[in-house]
Amino acid sequence: MSIFHDLIYDYTLRNVALGSAVLGIVSGVLGCFAVLRRQGLMGDALSHAALPGVCLAYMLTGSKTPVTLMLGAAAAGWIGMLIILQITRRTRIDPGSALGIILTVFFGLGVVLLTVIQKGNDANQAGLDKFLFGQAAALVESQVVTMAVIGGIALLIVTALYKEFKLLAFDAEFAGTLGLRTHALGTLLTGLLVVAIVIGLNTVGVILMSAMLVAPASAARQWTNSLSHMILYSALIGALSGLVGAVLSVVETGVPTGPVIVLCLAAAVIFSLLFGSAQGIAWDWVRRLKRRNGMKETTT
């Protein structure tokens, strides 16, 4: 079992494993709230919106340190989020269209900036395009540490405000009558989604990042009817899929990490949809089959 040995002692593999596990946990937890608030596509829009932030941060500072690029991504993601929320609250444009507009405009701008950067004769620029599909093999220790720290802060906030976030997701109107500032709380929760996205930039990339948010939560929902358990399972599924996908992409050289992780997530979702103990459809078939057989026995 040399792979386990390498996970601990090989520098690259250890970073990949830790980084993708951190990402899986943070996005698994925050994804639950996004899915339950029917904001599954929000993650997609915001992750695409982060790309121009990465490019601008590099163009302005000339630096590729993880903190600089993450800050740029977060800023762009938050700006995208605020625009989406304002469009939804103040105009008659429906939320889906608002997401579509921001996703395409920001991503378009990001691709243009990326091209501009690559056309410039700047030897240092190489590698910014890995943010499109992610490249876990390029993770360095400082990135993993940064991811863990900001992810940890996001999880602390979720833990502290768990009861408020739960009420917001289930019954925002009732939360409002209790005096909770639902707009502010909703903005904070969506803002934390941006944090999860920023953590996933290196590993999964902006294009497929939303899978990291939506898939673990959807799979976890199939196994439980309790929110706290759903969050726990979602974090586990996210961490496992992230880890397996990232390690596979590193070992089987040359494949971008994002797509491999997405395939692992897809397997988890399909398995859960079929066999999940709370909502899995296989159990429905079994019950129906039993009932039919039962009827046959009584009629014959």
Binding site: A160, K163, E164, G179, N225, L227, H229
Partner: peptide
């Protein structure tokens, strides 16, 4: 509120929903 105003498929049980009525008195974080 109107019964139709929430998603009844939300992962929670009856007791938990009733406890939400106490959140206002509990205050933040507790």
């Amino acid at each position: 509120p109107q019964r139709g105003s929430v998603d009844w498929d939300f992962p929670t049980d009856a007791l938990d929903v009733v406890m939400m009525g106490l959140y206002g008195k509990l205050g933040w974080i507790r």
